[in-house]
Amino acid sequence: MKPLQEPTFLILTALAAGPRHGYGIVADVVEISAGRVRLRPGTLYAALDRLEADGLVAADREEIVDGRVRRYYRLTEGGAARLDAEAGRLSRNAEAARSRLRALRGPMGGTA
């Protein structure tokens, strides 16, 4: 399975906490990435359109706030499974890197 791109991973992670509208996803992604990733509308909606077509997210409901449409998106079961698989893959990679770095620093850095 092809690894998810970071914006896609972060969007799915944001939706794993519950349905979000566009602005909510952008704000949540900023928080998850500690301010490093700020999704722009063109990137966000191109990704949401693709994820919706792939069945990983779905429209949940719509609200009208101050005369403007807010559509909420939710993670589907397929989306949750895909995010779980990707999180596992990243976690295994990260653990392998940490473990090797520990081994590398052990003999070099001593016990200090």
């Binding site: 566009g22 602005y23 722009r40 509308p41 063109g42």
Partner: peptide
């Protein structure tokens, strides 16, 4: 409509046009 909502929500007050970065992103 929802894209427009997000764009207007994230635009600073008083702005009358998209920034170059916004235009490129869209």
């Amino acid at each position: 409509d929802e894209m427009l909502t997000l764009l207007l929500e994230t635009a600073e007050d008083g702005r009358t046009g998209p920034t170059l970065r916004e235009a490129a992103d869209l």
